[in-house]
Computed example of a mutant assay.
Amino acid sequence: MAYNSSQDGQVQLSLLSTWLGHVDPANTYWYLSASPELMAAAGQRLESYLGAPR
């Protein structure tokens, strides 16, 4: 969701981590999973950041 709405993923992870009661956001990564849609959005953002032609 964060990628599609242009929200900062790290901020959203910190919010989720706090909500789950984790002291370290790294412990929250275990609850996340990659979906084809998320990976495609991440790839598009990376290409845009690197300036790769489409």
Results as ranks from 00 to 15, higher is better:
residue 29 Y to V: 12
residue 37 E to Y: 02
residue 17 S to V: 04
residue 51 G to F: 05
residue 27 N to P: 00
residue 48 S to R: 08
residue 25 P to M: 01
residue 47 E to Q: 08
residue 48 S to N: 09
residue 24 D to R: 07
residue 17 S to W: 00
residue 40 A to L: 13
residue 23 V to K: 09
residue 29 Y to E: 12
residue 32 L to V: 04
residue 16 L to F: 15
residue 49 Y to V: 03
residue 26 A to R: 03
residue 48 S to P: 00
residue 26 A to N: 03
residue 12 Q to E: 15
residue 17 S to F: 02
residue 26 A to H: 01
residue 40 A to V: 08
residue 7 Q to I: 00
residue 12 Q to K: 12
residue 43 G to M: 07
residue 33 S to W: 10
residue 29 Y to A: 07
residue 8 D to K: 02
residue 36 P to C: 06
residue 32 L to R: 03
residue 7 Q to W: 05
residue 44 Q to G: 07
residue 13 L to Y: 04
residue 3 Y to A: 08
residue 15 L to R: 09
residue 32 L to I: 13
residue 27 N to L: 13
residue 40 A to Q: 14
residue 8 D to W: 01
residue 49 Y to N: 02
residue 34 A to W: 14
residue 54 R to Q: 15
residue 21 G to F: 07
residue 12 Q to P: 01
residue 18 T to K: 07
residue 6 S to F: 07
residue 44 Q to C: 04
residue 26 A to Y: 00
residue 7 Q to M: 06
residue 31 Y to P: 01
residue 29 Y to T: 13
residue 32 L to E: 08
residue 36 P to E: 14
residue 32 L to T: 05
residue 4 N to Y: 08
residue 1 M to F: 10
residue 11 V to D: 12
residue 29 Y to N: 06
residue 20 L to W: 11
residue 49 Y to W: 10
residue 3 Y to N: 04
residue 25 P to Q: 03
residue 19 W to D: 11
residue 26 A to K: 02
residue 28 T to E: 05
residue 53 P to R: 12
residue 35 S to H: 06
residue 46 L to G: 00
residue 24 D to C: 03
residue 35 S to P: 01
residue 37 E to P: 01
residue 42 A to H: 08
residue 46 L to S: 02
residue 45 R to G: 03
residue 18 T to V: 05
residue 46 L to V: 14
residue 38 L to I: 09
residue 44 Q to R: 10
residue 53 P to Y: 08
residue 8 D to A: 02
residue 9 G to Y: 01
residue 49 Y to R: 10
residue 33 S to G: 15
residue 18 T to W: 07
residue 3 Y to S: 03
residue 32 L to A: 09
residue 11 V to Q: 13
residue 30 W to N: 13
residue 17 S to I: 02
residue 26 A to I: 03
residue 47 E to K: 11
residue 38 L to N: 09
residue 38 L to Y: 07
residue 11 V to W: 05
residue 8 D to T: 01
residue 20 L to T: 04
residue 3 Y to Q: 06
residue 12 Q to R: 11
residue 1 M to W: 05
residue 22 H to T: 00
residue 14 S to V: 02
residue 29 Y to W: 12
residue 45 R to S: 15
residue 4 N to I: 03
residue 11 V to Y: 06
residue 54 R to P: 11
residue 10 Q to W: 10
residue 39 M to G: 00
residue 38 L to H: 00
residue 29 Y to Q: 09
residue 12 Q to I: 15
residue 46 L to M: 13
residue 16 L to Y: 12
residue 37 E to V: 08
residue 22 H to S: 01
residue 34 A to I: 14
residue 50 L to F: 03
residue 35 S to Q: 12
residue 27 N to W: 05
residue 53 P to N: 11
residue 21 G to A: 09
residue 19 W to F: 12
residue 53 P to V: 08
residue 43 G to W: 07
residue 38 L to T: 09
residue 13 L to A: 07
residue 19 W to H: 14
residue 54 R to E: 15
residue 16 L to Q: 10
residue 27 N to S: 13
residue 35 S to I: 08
residue 39 M to E: 14
residue 28 T to Q: 02
residue 35 S to M: 06
residue 32 L to W: 02
residue 27 N to T: 12
residue 53 P to I: 00
residue 37 E to S: 10
residue 22 H to D: 14
residue 4 N to T: 07
residue 2 A to I: 03
residue 46 L to R: 11
residue 6 S to G: 06
residue 54 R to L: 12
residue 40 A to S: 12
